[in-house]
Structures are given as structure tokens and as C-alpha cells.
């Protein structure tokens, strides 16, 4: 462990002052600006901007996409994390790399890959067109792009916990006669619930705010395929600053609340452990 000293010396003050300056200028100033700009003309214009039909539609679409994405990636991510923690098999390292890959690459690529599959010149694009299936420039494309960019979060948070817990409890349950269902419902899921919740919240925050991947596949139709981040872009580029920042403040509050909840849960978890 590092040294634990009771009294701060001059070097501590210097380092803390530098750290506060960096965080204040680089990180806090932009956040404060969002809220100042949103209410630059008072409360009423900001609230009215949020009640416009295009804005309400964007909020609904963002929440709808987030619910589907969180449900799909949480269920499959939990199973994948358990598989990777409990079993050894060939190509396990390759599978883990594949699962980790989507967060390391550009979000724009997270949208591009779906156009390469289902776009007009894509592998399955012509087939989809003939059968009247419109995935791109509609909500299914937005869901697919968001699924891709939020793919590894549940696995990443659940896997270290499952590895640390070890298989003893699950093996005991099986020896005592637990079937597959009661093993999952009464041993595995209760044991990992805090890590699972933490991963779910991380997925939610990222799904709410995803911009690059969604920008590629959405088609930018206000009132129809614009999510909240895309509507922010539309408003900002249309010189509707107050409305853009009012929606930004709303989206930032949603994402920050989710992340704050996750921090609280992690604190509670580390206190218990």
C-alpha cells in the first residue's frame, strides 16, 4: 500500500490544486455550460422546447431503444459471463476478444457494419428490400447499432465477480439436487445481482447517449427516427441553441443519474464485501 500520512505537506497541496484546475477547466466547465445555456432565456423557453412533438418523439424513441437493448444484452451477457467464468473450452480467449472488441472501435463503425449487411448494396439488403423488410433508417437499425456498441458491458462487469466467487456454491447446489432452473434462479443470479445491476446501468447510460453508431443508420428524420442525441444535433445545427441545450440538459441528467446510481451500488457492494 502507499503511504498513509496524517498531515498534508506542500507537495500535496500543489498536486491537489493542479488536479482541481484540470478537472474544473476541462471537465466541469462544459457541464455547467450545458445547464446555463439551457436556461439562458429563463425556464419557460426551455420547458416549451422540451414539449415540442419532435422532441417528445425523440425522447420516446430513445427510451424504447434503450429498453430493448438493455433487455437483450443483459440476458445474453449474463449467460456469456457465466460460461466464460465457469468452463474452459477451445477458442475461449478468441471469444472473449470478440466480445470485448465493440467498445474499442469507433462508434461510427458500429453503425457502418449494419449498413454493410442491410444497406442498399449490403449482403442482405436486396433480399430485405424484396421482402419489404426495412431495417436501415428505421428503429430496428437504431436498435442493432446500439446493441453492437453496448455489447460487452454486462460481461465486463459480471465476469470478474463470477471468477472471484468461484464455482463452490453452484456445485454445492447441484450436488444437493438443484436443476438447471433453480441453479440460475436461486444461486447464480442472486449471487451476481449487484454486478449484474452495475452492468445493466452502464449499458443503459451508453444506450441513452449513443450518437455515432446511431447517426449512421437512423436517417435523421425528426419526429420519426431521431433519438435524443440526434435531435440535439438537428436543433444545434438549426441554430436553435436554447432547445438544443434544454434537450442536452435532460439527456445529461438522465445519463448522470444512471451513472450515479451505479456508483452508489458499487459502494454498497464494496462495503458488504
Amino acid at each position: 500500500m502507499s503511504r498513509v500520512r496524517d498531515r498534508a505537506d506542500a507537495r500535496d497541496w500543489l498536486v491537489m490544486a493542479a488536479a482541481c484546475a484540470i478537472v474544473g477547466v476541462l471537465l466541469i466547465a462544459p457541464l455547467v455550460l450545458v445547464f446555463v445555456q439551457a436556461f439562458a432565456d429563463g425556464w419557460r423557453p426551455a420547458l416549451e422546447a422540451l414539449r415540442e412533438p419532435e422532441t417528445l418523439s425523440a425522447i420516446r424513441l430513445t427510451l424504447f431503444v434503450a429498453v430493448i437493448v438493455v433487455a437483450v444484452n443483459s440476458v445474453f451477457g449474463t449467460i456469456a459471463a457465466w460460461l466464460l467464468a465457469r468452463f474452459d473450452f477451445r477458442f475461449k480467449a478468441a471469444l472473449l476478444t470478440l466480445i470485448e472488441l465493440p467498445v474499442s472501435i469507433s462508434p461510427v463503425i458500429g453503425g457502418l457494419v449494419w449498413l454493410l449487411l442491410f444497406g442498399a448494396q449490403g449482403w442482405f439488403g436486396p433480399w430485405c428490400e424484396r421482402h419489404g423488410i426495412g431495417l436501415m433508417f428505421a428503429w430496428p437499425g437504431i436498435v442493432l447499432a446500439t446493441l453492437f456498441v453496448t455489447f460487452p458491458y454486462v460481461v465486463r462487469t459480471a465476469l470478474p465477480l463470477l471468477e472471484a466467487q468461484g464455482p463452490a456454491q453452484e456445485e454445492a447446489a447441484v450436488l444437493l439436487g438443484a436443476g438447471w432452473w433453480s441453479l440460475w434462479a436461486r444461486v447464480i443470479l442472486p449471487g451476481m445481482r449487484l454486478a449484474l445491476l452495475s452492468g445493466v446501468l452502464l449499458t443503459t447510460a451508453r444506450a441513452l447517449g449513443e450518437f455515432g453508431a446511431v447517426a449512421v443508420v437512423s436517417g435523421h428524420i425528426p419526429g420519426l427516427t431521431n433519438t435524443m442525441p440526434l435531435e440535439i444535433e438537428t436543433l444545434y445545427n438549426g441554430y436553435r441553441s436554447t432547445a438544443a441545450f434544454a434537450l442536452s440538459a435532460t439527456l445529461a441528467l438522465m445519463a448522470l443519474a444512471v451513472i450515479a446510481l451505479r456508483t452508489l451500488i458499487r459502494r454498497a457492494g464494496s462495503v458488504r464485501a
Binding site: 471469444l95 470478440l98 457494419v113 449487411l117 464455482p167 453452484e170 438447471w180
Partner: peptide, 30 residues
């Protein structure tokens, strides 16, 4: 680890399906 816990095959199958459709297939197009 391995022999005791049930469900290796279905867990592997679901994980491969999920990773295959959402990551491997799109990246192979890229």
C-alpha cells in the same frame, strides 16, 4: 469446474449465437 455444473452446451450455444449475429457477422462484412 467442468464436469459438475450443468448447462455448458446451451450456454455455449446461446453465447455463440449472440456473439455471432451481433459481432462476428457484422465485422466479417467490414
Amino acid at each position: 469446474h467442468r464436469p459438475l455444473l450443468p448447462g455448458f452446451a446451451p450456454a455455449l450455444g446461446t453465447t455463440l449465437l449472440w456473439t455471432g449475429l451481433l459481432v462476428a457477422l457484422p465485422l466479417s462484412a467490414l
